[in-house]
């Protein structure tokens, strides 16, 4: 007997929640602003989901030509546009979030060496 994917994901969620709880409490209060910035970047992980939409196989020219007439090509095109938009927004977060964290941490670091 195998468990369903949903149950597996719930298990992962609960454990990740606990790990998050303990790891976050360990972050020094002085770095709470960089913490928010780096979590901004990490939440950009939704880029993965957006990639699956923007780059889905039905958009490759070969598959696209073979789609039956009953398929609404316009709707699929809008789906792809939304995926593109999602990848772009999430990428702003990833690049922007990591860059600003690095910039902030360099402010803390430059006076670390004496």
């Amino acid at each position: 007997m195998e468990i369903t994917t949903l149950t597996f994901l719930v298990t992962v969620l609960v454990f990740a929640g606990f790990i998050g709880y303990f790891v976050i409490w360990g972050v020094t209060p002085a770095l709470h602003t960089p913490l928010m910035a780096v979590t901004n970047a990490i939440s950009g992980i939704v880029v993965i989901a957006a990639m699956f939409v923007a780059g889905a196989e039905e958009f490759s020219p070969v598959v696209w030509e073979m789609l039956p007439d009953s398929v609404d090509a316009d709707k699929l095109f809008y789906a792809r546009l939304l995926g593109f938009f999602g990848v772009m927004l999430a990428s702003i977060n990833i690049f922007g979030g990591f860059a600003i964290t690095r910039r902030m941490l360099s402010m803390f670091r430059k006076q670390g060496r004496e």
């Binding site: 990639m51 490759s60 977060n93």
Partner: peptide
């Protein structure tokens, strides 16, 4: 995933907006 062009274009655009902002 079998189409990469839009993905890379969107990522480049994101970097182009995000990094100067930061």
């Amino acid at each position: 995933i079998s189409e990469y062009l839009w993905i890379f274009a969107a990522m480049a655009l994101g970097a182009f907006i995000g990094i100067p902002l930061a």
